[in-house]
Design a protein around this nucleic acid. Structure first.
Length: 260
DNA sequence: AGAAAGCCTCGGCCGC
DNA sequence: TGCGGCCGAGGCTTTC
C-alpha cells in the first residue's frame, strides 16, 4: 500500500516525536534483515534523541543526535504512534490492529511509542541508510529532473518500469504509476526512449497533478482509474475495456482506448 | 487458489 | 572470451 504519499503522512506523524529520547527499541529478525545483526537496532537506538524527520521516496528517515535511522514499510506496513495511524486505516489488507503484527519500534522516555505494524513481513528498519541509491524525490520533481530521470531517447525499458525504478525516481509505486499514465494517456508498455516531446510533457504534467490531487484526496488509492481496477473494468473516461498486464513486474491496469 | 500497493537477487543478454 | 550494465523474472511473506 504505502507509496510516497502515505510515507509522507507517516513522516508527519513521526514529526511529533522530534525532541523525544529513545529509552528502548526492538525489531524482529525480518524487520532487521538489512542490519548487520537482529540485535543491532536495540543496541544502537537506546539513548538517541530524535532531532528531525526526513523522507526520500518511500524511505522514512529519523535524524538523531547520533546515527541516522530509517524505516521502510513494504507493501502493507503502517506507522503507529501510541496506536494512532498516520492515515485512515489500510486500503489493502486487513483494516485492523493486531499486536503480533508489530514488527519493530521505538519507545521513548516520555512513555510514547512509535511502531511499524505490518501483517506481512516486508517492512524493514535501517541504520545510516545509503540515500545515494535513491533518485529524485517524487514530491520534489522538477521538469528538468524528470527529463533526466527518464533518460535519453532511443529504446529503454517500458515507461512504467522506469517510473517504478527507485534509483531514478524515488517514491512512485504501482498505483501512482498507473494513475499518471492513465491521466497522460500513455501506454505503459511504451519504451521510455520512444516517448516524444508531447508525451513527455503530458506525462510530467500528469505526474505533478497526480501527486497534488491524490495527496489532497488522501492517498495512492484515490486515483481516477481506481474504480476500474478489477477484471472486466471499463475506463471511467471513455468506457473502453481496461487491460491487465504485468509490466515492470507489477500488475498494470490501462485503458485500451486512450492509453496508446 | 491466486494475487497483492515493495524490494532484493539472480541470471540472461547485449555491447564494448 | 571477459566483464559490466541493463533488464526481466522470480522469490520473499502473509493475508484475504
Amino acid at each position: 500500500m504505502p507509496e510516497v504519499l502515505e510515507i509522507e503522512s507517516y513522516r508527519r506523524l513521526a514529526e511529533r516525536v522530534v525532541g523525544a529520547r529513545v529509552s528502548r527499541g526492538w525489531a524482529d529478525e525480518y524487520a532487521a534483515k538489512k542490519l548487520t545483526a537482529p540485535s543491532a537496532w536495540a543496541r544502537v537506538v537506546a539513548g538517541l534523541t530524535i532531532t528531525a524527520t526526513d523522507r526520500r521516496g518511500k524511505l522514512l528517515v529519523l535524524q538523531t543526535d547520533g546515527v541516522t535511522l530509517a524505516l521502510r514499510f513494504g507493501m502493507t506496513g503502517v506507522l503507529l504512534l501510541d496506536g494512532e495511524a498516520g492515515l485512515e486505516g489500510l486500503f489493502y489488507g486487513p483494516h485492523e490492529y493486531r499486536s503480533d503484527w508489530v514488527r519493530a519500534g521505538l519507545e521513548f522516555e516520555d512513555g510514547r511509542s512509535l511502531v511499524v505494524h505490518d501483517p506481512r513481513r516486508l517492512a524493514r528498519v535501517e541504520i545510516d541508510p545509503d540515500l545515494d541509491e535513491l533518485g529524485v524525490d517524487a514530491l520534489a520533481m522538477s521538469r528538468s529532473a524528470f527529463d533526466a530521470a527518464l533518460g535519453a531517447r532511443g529504446e529503454g525499458p517500458a515507461i512504467k518500469a522506469r517510473l517504478l525504478d527507485q534509483s531514478r525516481i524515488a517514491g512512485v509505486g504501482n498505483l501512482l504509476a498507473d494513475e499518471m499514465l492513465f491521466r497522460a494517456g500513455i501506454d505503459p508498455r511504451t519504451p521510455v526512449g520512444r516517448l516524444d516531446s508531447a508525451q513527455r510533457t503530458a506525462l510530467y504534467r500528469a505526474f505533478t497533478q497526480t501527486m497534488r490531487t491524490l495527496g489532497r484526496r488522501g492517498g495512492s488509492h484515490t486515483g481516477d482509474h481506481m474504480v476500474s481496477r478489477f477484471p472486466g473494468g471499463l475506463c471511467p473516461r471513455d468506457g473502453g475495456a481496461m487491460r491487465i498486464e504485468t509490466i515492470g513486474g507489477r500488475t498494470t491496469y490501462f485503458c485500451s482506448v486512450h492509453q496508446r
